[in-house]
């Protein structure tokens, strides 16, 4: 069973790296979908079945389709990125890698706080989560509706065709 975890992890990291190094946008997106599936698989291993499902539906299903749609819509599949200068590029990569190394070394040397497993291993099942969600986290749940409302209006507002000329003052 342990090997399953390591294989999955290796694949996840590989897919994620491929996302950032493939030059073709469509390929990046497909690798991203792959990454999401792998992460879902991790969720299954962690017994978080509900989230595994949601992850597939929301991320791999909805969000990635949106991405793919936009790329196709804007006809970007030809738009292969050219790396002009290596200096900022390597600076970026090095600084990111440095952050990871620093973090990792700090992690290695420090002892995690030990917490007992109090709630058992069935927390990720839908009945447990539902109970907690609607009992303790009712309020954020409601607030989420406002979030979606804002996003919805926002998209409508931004996507709307300009019916009237923008008034003069708004043009900087």
């Amino acid at each position: 069973m342990q090997n399953l975890f390591y294989i999955l992890s290796g694949l996840t990291i590989f897919a994620a790296i491929m996302v950032i190094i493939s030059k073709h946008p469509i390929r990046s997106i497909l690798f991203l979908v792959f990454t999401f599936f792998l992460i879902s698989a991790h969720y299954v291993l962690l017994n978080a079945q509900f989230l595994a499902l949601v992850n597939v539906v929301v991320y791999a299903g909805a969000i990635m389709v949106l991405f793919l749609f936009v790329v196709m819509f804007l006809n970007l599949n030809q738009d292969i990125e050219r790396f002009k200068s290596w200096i900022p590029l390597s600076a970026a990569a090095i600084s990111g890698a440095c952050l990871f190394l620093v973090f990792f070394s700090a992690f290695r040397t420090s002892v995690l706080a030990s917490h007992e497993n109090t709630g058992g291993y069935q927390q990720g099942l839908v009945e447990n989560l539902g109970e907690v969600l609607y009992r303790d986290y009712l309020f954020p749940m409601e607030i989420c509706s406002i979030l979606f409302l804002v996003a919805m209006i926002g998209v409508v507002l931004l996507g709307r065709k300009e019916r009237v000329e923008p008034i003069k003052n708004l043009v900087p």
């Binding site: 300009e162 923008p166 708004l170 043009v171 900087p172």
Partner: peptide, 8 residues
């Protein structure tokens, strides 16, 4: 909000 303006 100012969709036409590049700056916005």
């Amino acid at each position: 909000a100012n969709r036409r303006s590049v700056h916005s």
